[in-house]
Amino acid sequence: MGMRRATLRIRGKVQGVFFRESTRIEATRLGLTGWVRNHEDGSVEALAEGEPAALEEFIRWCHRGTQAARVTDVERSDSEPSGEFRTFIVERMS
């Protein structure tokens, strides 16, 4: 199977709990590329590309997050992968 792409909006207590950096570490461990960033509304957005099994494991992780996080909702949107990313980074707030 080919690469897949998912964009996630994660809500709950997900800012100020090391969520973005932990997300970057998990995505990198799984071999995914893309980015993660905070939003002014208190949510976190992540865009990830990679192998389907790794992407699904990453999405399951995002439903849990860090030990200090309290994820209440994860919205998912799938799209065609672009291959534009070389690594997974933490972006500045949008």
Rank of each mutant, 00 (worst) to 15 (best):
M3A: 11
L32T: 09
E84T: 01
S82Q: 13
I89F: 11
F58A: 00
L55G: 02
S82P: 08
S77M: 09
F85G: 02
E26R: 15
R29L: 14
V44K: 06
C62D: 04
G65W: 08
S79Q: 10
S77G: 11
E51P: 13
L8K: 00
L8W: 05
T66F: 04
I89P: 02
R11T: 09
R92S: 10
W35A: 00
F58E: 02
E91G: 02
T28N: 07
I25Y: 09
A53D: 15
L8Q: 06
E75H: 04
K13M: 12
H39G: 02
V44W: 01
D41P: 10
R4V: 03
T7Y: 05
R11F: 02
G12I: 07
E91M: 14
E84R: 06
G50Y: 05
E57K: 10
L32V: 05
S94D: 14
W35C: 00
A46Q: 12
I59W: 00
Q67L: 10
G31R: 07
G42Y: 08
F19C: 01
R24F: 07
T7D: 10
T7H: 13
V14F: 06
L30W: 00
I59R: 02
A68M: 12
H39I: 00
R4L: 12
S43M: 10
A53M: 11
T87Y: 09
A54T: 02
R37Y: 05
R29A: 13
E26A: 01
D78N: 07
E51T: 00
W35E: 12
R29P: 06
L55Y: 02
E40W: 14
G42T: 12
G83W: 03
V14D: 08
R20T: 01
S82R: 13
G42E: 12
M1R: 07
